[in-house]
Nucleic acid binder design. Structure first.
Lengths: 199, 199
DNA sequence: GCCGCAATTCGATATACACCTAATTTGATA
DNA sequence: TATCAAATTAGGTGTATATCGAATTGCGGC
């Protein structure tokens, strides 16, 4: 199931793929590519019942892949070849693929981690995963001014705003070299000094 | 569900569409199009658990849409852009679409109807649909020699081989002008005399 | 050797949807 | 007008599969 609503632009791509991700509908497309057919014929050719074919045709119709012409009560369907190729072409070009990524960019990863572990201003839980923990620590490090120095009580006070286990957080921050302890005082190190997320 | 096994050639097309007919997998494609990512990152970015992502990556991998590079225990995935475009292009060209229809050609419609209503040499059921009934009657008419004449007993005997309700079949054959009754004798009319299927 | 972590595999669940039958709509015809 | 035939819509069922938690695998460090 999808917890985020599909972004409108790529929604077309998704529906297009869904529409063709069924053997019966693919056969329909193939049949309608060559000739016009009514629902009965299609049902007979595919070995399906009319309602089923109607259902499939509706799906294709909603993507404008098939056209219908009514003669009395019999409906004649045919494929809109141009539409098919147009969609196939526009939908798979690189720019469109790029937009797919927009919804969840690499840069957004850390934000997502935060949203998973931070409720309001408090850290609910310290992630076990090294990379996620790194993202959390980066967020904690932002609480410190690189130009200032703090004694242990001050560091603890700042960290306590986020999570009760300030000692653990302090140790981690030092482990990743985001904080450094010198002569009993702490200071935030520049990012260039930090250990990488995956080491 | 599919009652016929997919033809090998279009099987690729079907699997390709199935693979992309899922929002999570589309997002994966988008993300992997821009950068290499490991499973944890992808899971975090999509808001899914690692096993789920693994599953999706497997699907994409089986179509050779993604490549994997293992560094220790972390697996780095990226999109094979060429593969994607190559498949998209080859799979949607007209010749390939034409092959889709091969499995159930228009000419094959009547054959299909027969296979649905005829078991061995016996007619299981007389279709209600006018067009299907017409196909069945055409098949029955083939039992009669256009150059011969039959009395009613003979006609009934021939039809009884196909279905117990020979009276009904006889009436229908006459209704469609496939058989004609003249002076108590029956004879098969040429196809040019038959009423059309849809009248 | 053992432990920890990333990834995968396994087993279960829950949703999506292809398909059917039955009921309804709609157009043509008698 | 009643009626029939073609299509669609409505409702229900079974299968496929997206997702998860738990167990397993496999690699790297101690």
């Amino acid at each position: 199931m999808n917890r985020t609503t599909a972004s409108n632009g790529n929604d077309t791509l998704l529906r297009f793929c869904k529409a063709l991700a069924d053997e019966s509908r693919l056969k329909l497309v193939g049949l309608l590519a060559k000739n016009e057919h009514n629902v009965q014929e299609l049902a007979a050719m595919l070995g399906l019942k009319e309602p089923t074919v109607s259902h499939h045709l509706l799906v294709l119709k909603q993507l404008a892949l098939v056209r219908m012409r009514a003669d009395g009560n019999t409906h004649w369907y045919r494929l809109d070849q141009d539409a098919l190729h147009r969609i196939a072409r526009t939908v798979f070009n690189p720019e469109n693929l790029a937009r797919l990524a927009a919804s969840a960019e690499a840069e957004g990863w850390e934000r997502k981690v935060l949203s998973n572990f931070v409720e309001g201003e408090r850290l609910i839980e310290i992630p076990v995963s090294r990379r996620k923990r790194w993202a959390i620590l980066k967020w904690l490090a932002a609480d410190f001014d690189p130009a200032a120095t703090y004694d242990e009580a001050q560091v603890n006070a700042i960290l306590k705003r986020r999570h009760h286990d300030c000692a653990m957080l302090r140790r981690e921050l030092i482990g990743y070299r985001m904080l450094a302890r010198e002569k009993g005082m702490y200071r935030r190190l520049p990012e260039s000094e930090w250990r990488a997320a995956d080491t």
